[in-house]
Design a protein around this nucleic acid. Structure first.
Lengths: 102, 102
DNA sequence: ATATCGATTCGATATACATCAATATGTATC
DNA sequence: GATACATATTGATGTATATCGAATCGATAT
């Protein structure tokens, strides 16, 4: 499942498949560490993974785990530059999620 | 923590407290059963708890547990009418959440 | 008061998730 | 290829959560 429609939550019937898909994406956002990561990346435009452990006060392994979830949910995009991994927010996807809830 | 501001996630710095609060509310939404409940209640205007177990195919105890979480997160409002409990969506609160993400 | 019916809470269980230390993988540079 | 550094994965552990059956609470009607 990957297609979600505007206002679906409040004014049209949500199928089981849509409910599962929406829950999956919201679950990826629903964590304080991941929200901080998204916030830092969004306000910076883009950001290097190397800075995150200090920023959120978690180990490199934990940060990597959270970043993976955000990428898999389509909220972040990853780009390798030399040895560093850079991340950007997928604003379009985030807008879609928003549109479904609003 | 209970005050969240528009566009906070994408364009202004999210404090730890705000991240925790936002995560708490999103977590309440981020479940297929709870999304279905919110959807049914929203599209119906209001709905009686007595109808939910069949609708989402879960026991009364499970439904009650999910409803409690949604009420505590401020997403639903509960009203007792005789022996039945009726629920409505708190649209204002849902808009606020939305505004923070969008 | 008591019997009935809806809803919540309690107790138990199974699964999911966050976290970290250790290890592995990948990407340069020498 | 060997070394160095950034990131990902693995394995283990503790905590949170979803779920249900049973017990309890609340409200109504008899």
């Amino acid at each position: 499942m990957e297609t979600l429609h505007r206002h679906q939550l409040l004014s049209s019937t949500l199928s089981d498949a849509d409910a599962n898909e929406l829950a999956r994406v919201l679950k990826a956002l629903a964590d304080p560490v991941r929200l901080k990561l998204v916030n830092v990346i969004a306000t910076s435009g883009e950001a290097c993974a190397c800075d995150f452990p200090d920023l959120v006060d978690k180990t490199q392994a934990t940060v990597s785990h959270h970043l993976k979830q955000l990428v898999q949910a389509g909220i972040l995009e990853r780009e390798q530059r030399g040895k560093w991994a850079w991340f950007r927010v997928n604003a379009d996807h985030l807008s879609e999620i928003c549109a479904v809830i609003c």
